[in-house]
Nucleic acid binder design. Structure first.
Lengths: 212, 212
DNA sequence: TTATTGAGTGAGCGTTCACTCATTATTATA
DNA sequence: TATAATAATGAGTGAACGCTCACTCAATAA
């Protein structure tokens, strides 16, 4: 009752650190073994706590999985896609979006691996939340951008969501094949080079002759 | 010793029908529950055989998974990508490849769902085999095509594998998001329309003005 | 008619694993 | 320091499941 406010804050802070610590461990194990292949025992060991402690912070194993994108991915991704400096050239803007996405994805390979493996099997609500925080987040952002810029005459008037998903698909497939599907059997180019080529391709097309 | 040849053939035929029947059941259950979530009991029930029978045809549960692309996907996909009629216009050719791929993918949604969920967690050899029969099959085919056509001056001289994967990515992402990730929350266009827009976009670029 | 075969069966074995809870350790308060 | 409150622990539990194997029986051969 006389509990000083500071102490409560400290406690909450410690508590959320514990949660984060457990989640990081869970992510690593999920990424290597898959959701069902991962065991609570292994996660507990990796987190340096006992099995019981995990159940003090998470209802069950599934809660552990569903907490991952909430606690780990969302904040840094959201920070990168504020719809602000769109006054740049298409080339610059798209290259920046692409590089920012790649950076985020690269920093979250494990999470994406887990998502890819789990999403097809998840129930409706969980899938919706996952997607809203990842794929849809980026592609909706792009869709709005294209919509606005088509109106201004920057882009041809194709369907904005086709533009958005096409652009997104171009580099997302690179990322997924490179980092997740194949090991290193891949094109001998850096992401910067790929980004430049992809944006160039997206803007100007693949054909050699511009004759119509 | 006097066994008539016909009888042997019939037996083999029946045997492979049994295998196919079990595999179809396995595919359905894997697609809904994931590999580890699926139980042999449920697969057996769905296939209309006993659990023991499954082990007469497959070494173990994993063998069931690995047999899927071999027995189900490979033949029809291979039939569609014979490198023959490349003398067509880029527009026609790419649209055909794209529609053929979409057709194949659509006919194999369950399998792709299973692949996507399993690949990140598979061991090296299994992953290699899976990929060779699916993603790599299409993208290598495209890469060779672009390589040849770049030499003939049809396309700008970008990196062939960037072209291939970019093109592949454009529609593969459409397919995956549409059929697997999202339910029906998606663009109100048919695959034909999307294919046309995507090919057009790929060939001519997104920019409105062709001024350089 | 009898013998042989082997595909088919499913109860049961052994193991794994998520989750519980009585006990112990730690921290806060009086 | 004593006491209360909270957190952490990990052995234990029960359910689930992959896989085995002793047995059945219809089809075929002798």
């Amino acid at each position: 009752m006389m509990t000083p406010r500071l102490s409560v804050q400290r406690k909450e802070q410690l508590e959320s650190e514990r949660k984060a610590q457990i989640l990081r461990a869970a992510l690593t194990v999920f990424a290597r073994k898959g959701f069902r292949g991962a065991t609570i025992a292994e996660i507990a060991k990796k987190a340096g706590v006992s099995e019981g402690t995990i159940y003090n912070y998470f209802r069950n194993k599934e809660d552990l999985l569903l907490s991952l994108p909430r606690e780990i991915l969302a904040p840094p991704l959201a920070a990168h896609f504020s719809p602000e400096k769109e006054a740049e050239s298409p080339q610059n803007f798209l290259e920046k979006v692409l590089m920012a996405s790649l950076e985020q994805f690269t920093a979250n390979v494990d999470l994406i691996r887990v998502l890819l493996a789990s999403v097809p099997v998840m129930d409706e609500a969980a899938r919706e939340e996952y997607l809203r925080r990842t794929v849809l987040f980026v592609s909706d952002f792009l869709e709005k951008y294209f919509q606005k810029e088509i109106a201004r005459g920057t882009y041809r008037s194709l369907h904005p969501s086709v533009l958005a998903r096409t652009f997104f698909g171009m580099f997302f497939v690179f990322f997924v094949t490179q980092e997740i599907l194949l090991g290193k059997r891949t094109v001998p180019l850096t992401y910067e080079e790929i980004a430049k080529e992809a944006v160039d391709l997206f803007l100007h097309g693949a054909l050699a002759s511009k004759a119509n």
